[in-house]
Each structure stands twice: as structure tokens, then as C-alpha cells.
Nucleic acid binder design. Structure first.
Lengths: 259, 259
DNA sequence: CGTTAGTGGTTCAACAAATGAACCGCGTTA
DNA sequence: TAACGCGGTTCATTTGTTGAACCACTAACG
């Protein structure tokens, strides 16, 4: 229902691992007839949301995306300030950062700042929806975000990504309680093997988390010696970004993070 | 022709001066029936390209714009590096910068970095299409960009924005020749009264301009004392951004800009 | 206090516009 | 040479889109 929506849904198939897709391929991915796929692509192209590589004939996200993002920044300011703070922190700790925000009822990546200091680094796809049970950001959001996230834990089917993924709601609730005390969450390869994540909440005006800030570290560099630096950076980010988005930290929130 | 396109075209009506629009209003703007407007808005909302303010019930660009922009950055890298260089320059000269790129056959704003140092500053709407005859960027593009821009000058109707706007193709060609020598263009209130613009080209691999970098200064601060600083910044930006996008400067291009 | 004009949103018959199987021409591969 | 995949086109079928009229509500106004 909704041709426009069907057309837009084709955009979902572009990702960092697949930034360019050919006609037949995307038609297969979206389960559409080639003719309709082409029509949709043409419409999106006319608007500029995708563009066609004249050589390879394959399609990629177009320049209109940038225009819209700039408009979004006007409607909902704050992201640009957040990017600057994240970039500063990135230089300090030398690792990639992810800002995730709760949109409607899913946790989505809003900003990614990748480290330029290491060739081995964590790359997150900006179009991915963050699973609450498998990531540091997700667990953090369960602890400090709106209650309905925790409530629907049982009714949702929790996907298992790696050996370390938690799928038992009871165990998750225990972790969430711990995180509520500590103020920060971590995930040791529970979303992707070899990736350690550290996350802290960003609060809204009502002292309920509106999103999270996370630092993603490859296992090789996730030594206990580096933890203090990561945790202090995370804490200042949590504070600064909460202020940046016009939120307020709860009084009960820890003034520093301990391992 | 194309429902999806009609739906997308509703996004065009959002701007910096009007970041939130109500149903009836946008239906009137787009010349659509309220019912169809609502259907389109709902489709865009489901995808996340717009979102509805629960209080005011009016609509604004949504978070999906950011996701798409991030994907765009993956497909066509460079913008992020450009932003950093522009931000550095912004701190140096204390004025707003605009990066424009030639998309298909129109000149569009790709990045805006606004100064934080002055309350009186130039704000450009990121969704605007840049007129070639009235802006420094446009003139610059005519001088260093693909030939078809100059060729179609006569056939296009050139809009007059202010008293100072040039609309005579012959006069414009003279200016374009001058700019070709100097390496940089300026526009003194020819697009908007009280706004002085300085622009320099960004070259592609074939030594033809793919876009421009411009510094916009309010008339009050556009003193001859500040010109040298602006021009040197402009020249380094022109060089750095050309390198950033993998382009090459022509050997004949001036090594510095003179007033 | 009733009137008017505005808002956001819904309904449903009439119809235009999206759909998809089959097709073409082309370049690769076997 | 034949088979396969690619991007793209055609056209009868039908599905989803359209818009006038409608409802409920709010704000301004005499």
C-alpha cells in the first residue's frame, strides 16, 4: 500500500558494503519486477535521491540526500554540534564513535565518526537498526530510556548474532539493572565478533535517555590499560551531548565511570 | 506522472525559513488535494523522511535524511573531508562558507558552514539552486566549468534579483573572461542586497571545475582591509578542496589571488 | 453566544496510473 | 554457437490513487 513508500523502500538496500547496485540486482532484493524497479529508480533519480553511474549503469544514493540532511539540521538542530564533540573525542581516544538516537520506537544510528588513526577500526553501517539485546547502546537504552523498551523485551524475538549474544530476557534484565548502577554499558563481541563496545546515555529534558553515545574498539586494542581513557571520554561525552541536545542528567547518575 | 515523484516533491517546500509546515499549508503549496497530500506525507513519514510534531501536528524533515546522507558519503566520499577544511577556514576568516557542486546541469549547495563568531552573518538555504548570473559561485562556474553552461547563457532567461544583478549575456561574458584571468569571482549584492560573495573553483580530474567554494560576507565587514585574508583563504581552499575531491588544478591557474 | 473560517483528518466512487510477463539488443561466458 | 545475464522497453490488465464532500475541533470575532 503506497507506491511512494515502495519506491522509497528501495533505498533501504543501499549500505556501506553495497553502495552501488544494478537494476536487476535491486529488483531481486526488493522483490519487484524489473520494470517497476526501474520506474521507481527513475523517480528517485529525478528527485536526486539516487544517481546512476554512467559507466557501470548501477545506482547509488544521490546528492539530494545531503540537501535533505542540511534541512533536517535546521528543523532539529544539534547534530552538527554533536559531530564536533565526537570528532574531538575521536582524536583523544583514537577510536570510532557512534551516536544513536531513539526514533519512534527503534534505535537508529544518527552519526558515525570513524577514527583516522588506525587502519583496523570498527565500521558501522549507518542504515542499520540497533538491536537492544546485542549492543552496548541497546543495553544502555534499556537502562535509561523509556520503559516501553524493557516491557516489550519478552514479546520481541531477540536475534542471536554471535556466541556472546544475550537472548534470555531474564539475564538481560539483570544486566540492565547493573548498567543502571554503573552508568555505562559494554558489549564484548555480542553483536559482532572482535568488536568491543562502550556506551553511555544521552538524556532528554525529562531525564529519560533519548539516545546513546558509543565507542567501538577492536578486540586487539580493548586492553584494560586503555579502559580508563575510554570511560572518562565516554562520561564527558554523555554529559556534553546531553547538554548539547538540551537535556538534563538525573541527579542519581554517577559522576564518573568505574570499570 | 509518477506518484512517488509527486510525494518526494513535497519535500521541496521545506526550507530554512519554513522548516515546519502544516497539512493544509503544504497541500496548498504543492497544489494537491489535502487527502493526497496526507497520503504522501504518511508514506514519507513511514520511511522517516519527514516526521510529525505531535504537539503542533505540523511536519518537518525526518531522521532518514541523515541516514541517507551518511550513505551518500560512503558512495561519494569527500564531503566529510571538505567540511573539516571549510570549518578550519571559517575559524580563520570568521565568515560563512558555501560549497556548491555541479549536479547534472544545475549548481547546487552541497555544504554550508556558518560562522559562529558574528551574529550578523550570511545564511544560505541549502535547498536553493544557485543562479549562474547573480552569484560569485555561478560566475566562477561559468569561467572554469564545462562549456555548456556558457553556451546556454543566451537561451536561458536570467532572473534579476537586485539592482546589481547582471542579466545581459554580453556583459556577463566580459566578466567571465576577467574571472578566468584572476582565478576568483566576486558578487557585490547581485544576488541579495548587503551580501558580498567571493568564490573560487574546485577542479575535477580533467581540470574543469566540478564546483566552487565561496565565502559570503555581510557588506558591513566587506572592507578592503579584510580582502587579503579572504583571498588567501579562498586560494588555499580552492587548492585543498581540488585535491580533496581528487582533481587537478590547471597549470595556468594563478598561484595567488589579487584584489 | 452563535457565526465564520481555519485547522487536521476521513470516506468512497470514479478513474488514471502502476504493474508485470514477455520482449529486445547487447556483452560475457562456455 | 548457444546460453545466460545484463539494462531497458512495451502494453493489456488491474490496482492503487485521486478529489469532492464530509466530520470534529479550535480560534477569532461581533
Amino acid at each position: 500500500m503506497g507506491t511512494a513508500l515502495n519506491a522509497l523502500k528501495m533505498l533501504e538496500y543501499f549500505s556501506s558494503s553495497q553502495p552501488e547496485i544494478g537494476l536487476s540486482h535491486i529488483a531481486r532484493l526488493a522483490g519487484l519486477n524489473k520494470a517497476t524497479a526501474l520506474r521507481h529508480l527513475r523517480a528517485l533519480e529525478e528527485f536526486g535521491l539516487i544517481e546512476q553511474n554512467p559507466q557501470t549503469k548501477s545506482y547509488a544514493i544521490g546528492p539530494a540526500a545531503l540537501r535533505l540532511a542540511a534541512l533536517r539540521e535546521i528543523a532539529k538542530p544539534g547534530l552538527d554540534g554533536a559531530r564536533q564533540k565526537m570528532q574531538a573525542a575521536m582524536h583523544e581516544v583514537g577510536e570510532s564513535l557512534h551516536l544513536t538516537l531513539l526514533e519512534k520506537d527503534t534505535l537508529q544510528t544518527a552519526l558515525v565518526v570513524e577514527t583516522t588513526q588506525h587502519s583496523v577500526r570498527v565500521s558501522l553501517d549507518p542504515s542499520e537498526i540497533i538491536p537492544v539485546n546485542a549492543t552496548a547502546s541497546g543495553l544502555c537504552m534499556l537502562s535509561f530510556g523509556p520503559a516501553f523498551l524493557l516491557e516489550r523485551l519478552e514479546s520481541d524475538t531477540l536475534t542471536r548474532f554471535t556466541e556472546a549474544t544475550m537472548t534470555d530476557p531474564k539475564i538481560i534484565r539483570d544486566r540492565v539493572a547493573q548498567i543502571g548502577q554503573a552508568g555505562w554499558a559494554n558489549s564484548n563481541g555480542s553483536f559482532e565478533d572482535g568488536v568491543f563496545g562502550y556506551a553511555a546515555p544521552i538524556f532528554g529534558i525529562d531525564q529519560i535517555a533519548i539516545g546513546t553515545i558509543a565507542i567501538a574498539v577492536p578486540e586487539i586494542r580493548a586492553t584494560s590499560a586503555r579502559q580508563p581513557l575510554i570511560l572518562t571520554s565516554l562520561h564527558t561525552l554523555s554529559k556534553d551531548l546531553t547538554a548539547n541536545f538540551g537535556g538534563q542528567m538525573p541527579e542519581t547518575f554517577p559522576t564518573e565511570f568505574h570499570p
